[in-house]
């Protein structure tokens, strides 16, 4: 019973954190699913979001302006990756790694050290682990507004051209779509959202840390994949899909919390996350392999008959 109680006690916190990572996962969804690019910039840009928000707020800037600036900083990081990838022809994964490494230095400079405290008792934060219920309401509102905005955007002429770019680049060019521009735009949008989640995370946890973004891409991917698994059976609608990604973040953090309550050595958590993502990424590959084998067997049987 102790275990159940400790899990239940931890639940609101897990939901709040999950919501923040869900927002981050929506950013990852834009690059990974819509643009078909694995963008590793996010490990850096989430930390940039934390750093900018924390530094500005500790210097007395209003929380909304701090979050806006955090978002803009993330967008700038996305722009850099985009330029590396399109204008300089660097493969997307490598372009993201380069920006991520650059951001390490940038984030250190912004923070002015390895970490910076942003105590909720001193500063006027929107979300904090000291008031989880209130934080959950705020974060749900953020998520809903974000999902609605993205649903609208990807339904517009420009937005559907961005989707086409990720789906079939040759066709997009033939239809007069500026695919390079769209890729850069997608990377900017994605990293802006990721940095926004970073800003929320800094407020919620009450500090910004230079290591705060390590492995963020894996958590983002996990949320995207979990969300897809949960929602794909219900509906293929884009709106539902985005909600699913946000839910994926929450589910990830609840599971994470349960694992912690089970007193598993937390040193292993990142390894577990990575393995879970690896297995989920392998499933579609295994599926095609398995099914094609079945087909071949059928064909062979038919020709033998």
């Amino acid at each position: 019973m102790d275990l159940l109680e400790s899990i239940l006690n931890a639940l609101p916190g897990a939901v709040a954190q999950g919501l923040i990572w869900g927002i981050m996962a929506i950013g990852v969804f834009i690059t990974f699913k819509i643009l078909d690019v694995a963008d590793l910039t996010v490990d850096g840009s989430i930390c940039t979001g934390m750093a900018v928000c924390a530094v500005l707020m500790t210097n007395g800037v209003n929380v909304w302006i701090a979050m806006l600036c955090a978002m803009l900083a993330g967008m700038l990081a996305g722009l850099v990756t985009g330029i590396f990838h399109t204008f300089m022809g660097i493969p997307a994964i490598l372009a993201g790694i380069l920006t991520q490494l650059m951001l390490w230095s940038v984030n250190l400079k912004i923070l002015g050290g390895a970490n910076l405290a942003l105590p909720a008792r001193t500063y006027d934060v929107l979300v904090t682990l000291l008031r989880t219920n209130q934080s959950i309401i705020v974060l749900v509102l953020f998520t809903v507004v974000l999902v609605m905005l993205l649903y609208w955007f990807f339904g517009t002429e420009f937005g559907s051209a961005v989707r086409a770019t990720g789906c079939n680049i040759k066709m997009s060019k033939a239809q007069g779509i500026n695919t390079d521009f769209n890729k850069v735009f997608g990377l900017i949008l994605s990293n802006g959202i990721v940095a926004l989640s970073g800003a929320l995370l800094a407020q919620y946890s009450g500090s910004a840390d230079i290591n705060g973004g390590r492995g963020a891409i894996v958590i983002g991917l996990a949320a995207v994949i979990i969300g897809e698994a949960v929602i794909s059976k219900i509906s293929k609608n884009f709106f539902v899909h985005l909600i699913g990604v946000a839910l994926g973040g929450i589910i990830y953090y609840i599971v994470y919390q349960v694992v912690i309550c089970l007193k598993v050595d937390t040193d292993f958590l990142k390894m577990l996350s990575a393995l879970v993502v690896a297995v989920f990424l392998a499933v579609p590959y295994w599926k095609t392999k398995y099914f094609s084998k079945k087909k071949q067997q059928k064909k062979g049987a038919a020709s033998n008959a």
């Binding site: 339904g155 517009t156 002429e157 420009f158 559907s160 051209a161 989707r163 079939n168 007069g176």
Partner: peptide
């Protein structure tokens, strides 16, 4: 497989083609 976007609907594909050579705005597709 090359001339269409597989993950998008028939009408979405046609709308993409219908705006070939035009500015793609923030109007509904």
């Amino acid at each position: 497989m090359m001339g269409t976007a597989a993950d998008m609907w028939i009408e979405e594909n046609m709308a993409l083609a219908n705006r070939r050579g035009m500015r793609r705005s923030l109007r509904w597709a």
